[in-house]
Design a protein around this nucleic acid. Structure first.
Length: 489
DNA sequence: GCATGATCATGC
DNA sequence: GCATGATCATGC
């Protein structure tokens, strides 16, 4: 038997020792250290799963039962998290990083600083492994490890997230919690449909089991960091590099929320059309650019943004920013497209909760609303004038997620049965009036992708929100202002 | 007027 | 060539 050479009092030492686990499975690594242990002895007893197995068998550190971090002396929490390989061979985050179960009745009594999440998750050793369906946990290959320190700015955002969740429980709405309520720390669903509901303290309505988790979008930025970082020793204290564009500074977040800061930034331009806004930035805008409203919205946020998720906070939170144009009668002409449906990803995802569409449906949305203003001046004789009217944040209400799931199941069926060609699919259409539909989105009709089942060329399609669904969302956000703002007959 | 398929400017 | 963030164009 070889000695396990690491210092349990030292975070960096614990991290360095994890490197010998990479490109091997737990069973391989443990048997190489200690030949008295047989692979079949490495089993999961209790609920800790792979993380606890690593702690016990690889580190030889007896799991403690206190509420602090796994490596108590060093203050390091050990986390294992799965990656999945898509049909196109790319690696992707499989799940959000679940931290602690939410006990609705207990959590409302705890300020953030006394929460289990805060006590445990400040410094995490995160081990990424490759998920393979049906394989024993001890035989899964570890690919990356990172010592991740939550930086102060992220903690400010996470603290507000925590408080948003607590406030919703205090309002008796634990059953309406959604990952889209918050930015980095989400209240994610645990367990299956039909599991017994949990008690909540301020309502008699039962609520599905939930846990605090770092969102998939946040995990994606950690993975991206690990895969590009060349340094041997890493924490994210110095992660903000030239690639990361910061929209809101740490100092501002001490005073206001991220959303309030952004809203205020937009509202300085309320009532202005795109030419006026572009003008104040000395920015050229092409009239024929179909994305010109999005372009000026990005410019209001930052000079450097090419895409919305070039911004650190938008990337980590997965916030989806969209511009909306409303006609004078309150109608919305165009439906709203999202990304192309990745058929490989659908083929590879069993549970809709782990799907990209679930992530979209439970995202936080930032809607930037422009409204039509009739203008008979010469300047606007060939173009309709829209002015920036308001910005609001939204997430899909919990009760609408069932329909979003049905929509995904329909797409999944079409992928599985390989009916992705135009003629024989059963995709939802706009006339189905079910809020979402599937529609082409490509460069040209000749721009195709491959079916994961048969490998033949099939049309590229995207996820779409129906235009009347967008109208409902916007109308709800305007509330009493809706009638006053638009000429509703 | 509306639904649906087709396409576009931009930037990498 | 392709993703992004959209709007345009056509036919009923």
């Amino acid at each position: 038997m070889k000695e396990r050479i690491y210092d349990p009092n030292n975070a960096k030492s614990i991290f360095h020792f994890s490197k010998d686990l990479l490109h091997r499975s737990l069973a391989e690594a443990v048997c190489a250290i200690d030949d008295s242990i047989k692979a079949e002895d490495i089993v999961c007893n209790g609920k800790g799963g792979l993380g606890q197995m690593v702690e016990k068998y690889y580190y030889g550190y007896e799991p403690n039962s206190d509420s602090g971090p796994d490596f108590r002396e060093a203050g390091v929490e050990l986390k294992t998290t799965p990656l999945k390989k898509l049909a196109n061979e790319e690696l992707a985050i499989k799940e959000r990083l679940v931290c602690d179960m939410i006990d609705f009745c207990d959590v409302v009594k705890r300020p953030f600083e006394e929460s289990l999440f805060y006590k445990k998750s400040l410094l995490m050793l995160i081990l990424f492994y490759l998920h393979v369906a049906g394989k024993d946990l001890r035989d899964l290959e570890f690919l990356y490890s990172v010592l991740w320190k939550l930086k102060d700015k992220d903690l400010l955002i996470i603290k507000r997230d925590y408080e948003t969740i607590i406030d919703k429980i205090k309002a008796g709405k634990a059953h309406e919690l959604s990952e889209g309520d918050t930015m980095y720390l989400g209240a994610c669903r645990k367990g299956k449909k039909g599991d017994p509901l949990r008690k909540q303290p301020f309502s008699d309505i039962g609520a599905p089991k939930r846990a605090f988790a770092l969102k998939t979008s946040y995990m994606r930025t950690i993975l991206e960091f690990v895969r590009t970082e060349k340094k041997d020793m890493v924490t994210n204290t110095d992660i903000v590099t030239e690639n990361e564009i910061e929209l809101v500074a740490e100092e501002e977040l001490k005073k206001s929320s991220f959303e309030d800061v952004l809203t205020e930034r937009f509202m300085q331009f309320k009532g202005q059309d795109y030419r006026e806004i572009a003008g104040s930035f000395k920015m050229e805008v092409n009239v024929n650019d179909k994305s010109k409203y999005a372009r000026i919205a990005k410019r209001i946020l930052s000079e450097k943004l090419k895409e919305f998720d070039d911004a650190e906070e938008i990337k980590k939170s997965g916030i989806i920013a969209k511009t909306v144009r409303i006609e004078t009668n309150g109608k919305i002409r165009e439906s709203m497209s999202f990304e192309n449906i990745n058929y490989d990803e659908i083929a590879d995802t069993e549970d809709w909760i782990d799907s990209r569409w679930y992530e979209i449906a439970t995202s936080r949305f930032m809607f930037i609303v422009f409204r039509a203003v009739p203008d008979t001046s010469k300047e606007w004789e060939n173009e309709k004038r829209y002015v920036l009217d308001r910005v609001f944040f939204w997430t899909m209400p919990a009760e609408e997620l069932d329909r979003a799931e049905e929509y995904w199941n329909n797409i999944k069926e079409n992928v599985t049965s390989d009916t992705l060609t135009d003629e024989d699919n059963t995709f939802w259409k706009m006339t189905d009036r079910k809020d979402f539909h599937v529609r082409p989105k490509a460069q040209t009709a000749a721009d195709k992708c491959k079916s994961p089942v048969s490998g033949v060329d099939v049309p590229k399609k995207a996820y779409w929100f129906n235009n009347d669904y967008i109208q409902e969302i916007v109308k709800h956000a305007y509330a009493d202002e809706w009638q006053k703002t638009f000429e509703i007959k």
